[in-house]
Design a protein around this nucleic acid. Structure first.
Lengths: 145, 145
DNA sequence: TCTTAATCAGACAAAAAACTCTGAAACAAA
DNA sequence: TTTGTTTCAGAGTTTTTTGTCTGATTAAGA
């Protein structure tokens, strides 16, 4: 089995999207977020720390502390989160794992996958959290149970 | 770091492509194949066994035995190898890991990724090993060192 | 000031994926 | 019939990823 993004990255994306559904600087504890995206609190906590280090979200310690979206939702793209957690190797390496895959020595899917890969990158780069907000809010609300 | 296919799947694809570069029923030992695709012999051996079980390649025991492409190259597609090793969950599950991702409750990239995912599936399904043969032979030869 | 609730750092544990080893069975060729 | 080379099954090991625990630090509110 395989996926595009690691578990960490999926949860990081979900967490950031969750934060983007609320007014800027609204604080949420790791516990609240973890319950909402249905993942272990400690694990989510670690991921949020990583994203704090990379500057996408901010944190506040102490009683009634938590995490918040630090950068304006109009300036954050999904690719920024992916880049912070998984890196961008996915968009560089040969999808079949061949070494030296290039225009001169292409793998059997070099051209077709290259095109799709670029479109995937574009998909994650073109829209900001602000632009995705409506659909995000809708999805977040559907997670309530 | 993430990739589309697991290491097993990448090597399985490479091995099958390697076999498809030669006339049907040509035998290669696991050692020969592993050296060509630059991977551990024992690991490649295991992967080839999996593909043998799924019927894509055949095997012959004993002295001067080895593995060979069992199905006609005109009837094998890359998706068949992917399906045999990694399965097809990649083409079913939400790329952001959200539960219940659907038209009614779409994730923020449901539509765009859905389209790209279908195109990726098509890419792996449309062409057979036979149709990819020229570019495969070229790539295989470039691996010689 | 004390209690409580939060982040955070680092070590730790468990599970999954990647990779190795051993020994048995098959079989070609000497 | 013996020797050498191979697949193959299953167990074992290593590494990576996922997930947990502990304790220190921070800070709001009673």
């Amino acid at each position: 089995m395989t996926v595009i993004f690691s578990k960490k990255c999926e949860l990081g994306l979900q967490a950031v999207l969750y934060l983007s559904a609320f007014p800027k600087n609204t604080l949420f504890s790791a516990l609240e977020i973890s319950e909402k995206i249905n993942a272990p609190k400690e694990f989510v906590s670690k991921i949020l720390q990583t994203l704090t280090t990379s500057g996408i979200i901010g944190s506040k310690k102490g009683n009634s502390g938590g995490f918040f979206l630090k950068i304006d939702p109009g300036s954050v793209r999904l690719i920024d989160v992916v880049s912070a957690i998984d890196g961008l190797d996915l968009f560089r390496n040969c999808v079949l794992g061949f070494p030296g895959c290039s225009v001169d020595e292409p793998c059997p899917v070099h051209e077709t996958w290259g095109k799709l890969r670029n479109e995937t990158y574009t998909m994650l780069s073109n829209q900001t959290l602000a632009e995705l907000r409506d659909i995000t809010v809708n999805k977040i609300n559907s997670l309530k149970k």
